[in-house]
Design a protein around this nucleic acid. Structure first.
Length: 219
DNA sequence: ATCCCGAGGG
DNA sequence: CCCTCTGGAT
């Protein structure tokens, strides 16, 4: 397993590689961020931004999303995967905001995760980015990287991964580390063909060493 | 465990 | 062709 010291060294490397990593989902308020994050499930954020550019011009308030037929909303987000579920969840979410939260996104996890289409990961993104409340969102990149490095076990649940990262990371660093891991996972520690040959962490990485011995790392 | 589900990269 | 993308609900 990776020691806490090695983990902190990893975070320092992230600071060098991605000094200003930040949320790349384009948004102007908590409501837009929630919609964008909901749309980002199993989808690149570049594609989300392409869709929300027009979407956020057309729909400003929760009521705006309820004033159109579901088919029209589906069409507006069709280029994103899972568009039927996402369109339905957006309208259900908007109705709940109006009925129970005065049309505003609530700033606490318990309320957020009850919203349609909003799970723990999305809630943590909204808390952290929109409200500056410390939270660690575990997405596909964060899970893959922490397990490859050996900070977490392969069998760990996403909740266990979240707890481990929070325990071993200074709280003021949670948000930055989250976005740095997204960049690192997207461009270096990719799901396919990870760039182990140029990775500064190869000597400390459990998966990297494994791939090295298998001859999968071309130096 | 399975379904949803289009765009992009290899 | 295949796999992956800032997951969530059943």
């Amino acid at each position: 397993m990776l020691t806490k010291g090695k983990w902190l060294e990893f975070l320092d490397v992230m600071d060098e590689m991605f000094p200003d990593a930040h949320c790349e989902l384009v948004h102007e308020n908590p409501f837009e961020l929630t919609i964008a994050t909901l749309l980002s499930a199993q989808c690149t954020d570049a594609l989300v931004n392409r869709v929300t550019k027009d979407l956020f011009q057309k729909y400003k308030t929760p009521q705006d999303y309820l004033n159109v037929e579901i088919e029209e909303l589906q069409n507006d987000i069709r280029s994103i995967g899972l568009y039927r579920n996402k369109a339905k969840n957006i309208q259900l979410l908007c109705q709940r905001l109006i009925d129970e939260y005065n049309g505003e996104i609530p700033a606490n996890r318990e309320a957020l995760v009850t919203l349609p289409g909003v799970g723990r990961k999305t809630a943590n993104v909204v808390l952290s980015v929109a409200f500056d409340i410390p939270a660690m969102a575990v997405d596909t990149h964060v899970e893959r990287i922490t397990k490859r490095l050996g900070l977490c076990r392969w069998k760990d649940s996403v909740l266990e991964v979240e707890e481990t990262i929070m325990k071993k990371t200074p709280i003021e660093r949670w948000s930055r580390a989250h976005h740095q891991m997204i960049f690192f996972g997207r461009y270096h520690c990719k799901a396919q063909n990870p760039q182990c040959h140029i990775c500064p962490l190869l000597s400390d990485c459990r998966e990297g060493q494994k791939r090295l011995k298998k001859g999968l790392v071309k130096l």
